[in-house]
Design a protein around this nucleic acid. Sequence first.
DNA 1: AAGGCATTTCTTGTATACAAAATGGTTGAC
DNA 2: GTCAACCATTTTGTATACAAGAAATGCCTT
Lengths: 230, 230
Amino acid sequence: MTRRRADQIADSIEEMIFTGQLSDGDRLDEIRLATRFDVSRTPVREALQRLVASGLAVQMPRRGVFVRQPGPVELVEMFETMAEIEGVCARLAATRISDEALEELRQANLRCHDAIASDDSDGYYRENEIFHQIIYRQAGNGFLEQQALALQHRLKPYRRIQLRLRGRMSQSMAEHEAIVAALTDGDADGAAGAIRDHVAVQGEKFRHLMAHLKTPAQAPRQAGPVSGIR
Amino acid sequence: MTRRRADQIADSIEEMIFTGQLSDGDRLDEIRLATRFDVSRTPVREALQRLVASGLAVQMPRRGVFVRQPGPVELVEMFETMAEIEGVCARLAATRISDEALEELRQANLRCHDAIASDDSDGYYRENEIFHQIIYRQAGNGFLEQQALALQHRLKPYRRIQLRLRGRMSQSMAEHEAIVAALTDGDADGAAGAIRDHVAVQGEKFRHLMAHLKTPAQAPRQAGPVSGIR
DNA sequence: AAGGCATTTCTTGTATACAAAATGGTTGAC
DNA sequence: GTCAACCATTTTGTATACAAGAAATGCCTT
């Protein structure tokens, strides 16, 4: 699978948005990006279209493409949606999951545990992601799985932050174990409720962090076309 | 909002895919499409990218873009996902819906009823869509609403078919009323279950139709690059 | 005659050139 | 001094030109 230039550029810009090098309202200047990546405008435009399609940017015809960071309200909505979708996955998985997958879940949990023990935040994050992805897959619905993966990817940068909270990792672990227990019992509603709360609490924690860490003075949604690339 | 040429082309091609003028595996020839729409390759390429992003086509680097009609398995998965997402919307809406929206639902149902009385399949289809969209909105989560709308749009051509089944419209009506009743009572689980079954049965009916109407001999997924545009 | 290799042709991906629209600044009128 | 209209500049959207990789064709060998 040969990767096209435009795809790499899209990933790079996405990374820049995730890491905050580009913030909400910044105009994505085609020419500037083109010189930056040492290509012509064409692949840059294709990359921008991909970002627009995935919701990371918005396009105003004849005006340009602008970074579109979700505000607090939308973030809460996205986390709620994630929680509900994961709930659906768990409910379906409860009746469809294989014994092997259950075992994989327990293994992933063990590795999560190890990561906590060695205070390995990155490691925990990675294994936690795998844990959830196993559940998506065990819902036995490839389309749903893709939707869940897409949303998980989109929320990645925001999920990461709240892991730093004191005790959050071990609390999260306990919730994982409750989820596995419900899935083992084939308790559809129990599993759905458990994972729903598990994800919802992430959103809640994140919301708290946002409110405390920085009060971005409710940055104007319709920010002016100020380029953030220097 | 000025519409760009590329967007119009994307919609046109989407329409061609929906109406079957383009079928699974057909290669979307840039030059042919460009001459057909009397534009250069550039806007055509942008349109194709949009189709790829929305899942209606797949791109094989350096090879081209091909129509990607979901097969029976994926369709079942998509309907199941739609049923679950609508279930989520209903469950959230049960505690959030306004009295005005409840009244709108009843009105939409009345119009559905009229459409059945006058044997107006198109009218029923339209009002039915509105009914569901009200529920999406009343979930009180704009992000979730967008997801639901996107999936509803994607399943449009397949939902339409099964309405032709004898008695399907009146059965569907009855289900609608059960949903409204549950929402009125604030019965979250009841509403979720009702609409989930309501949508799931659509998928089921569709599956039956597929199996009976035409057995397309399981068209090869990796169809050759034969252009379907004459 | 069949199979493999080289060449040719065709298509995608990228760069550049051009057109049209929007922004910004300047000038002029009131 | 302020507001509006006009012009210049910048930027998007589209067309065309060019490069590189893939498929197709034909030739040569066995």
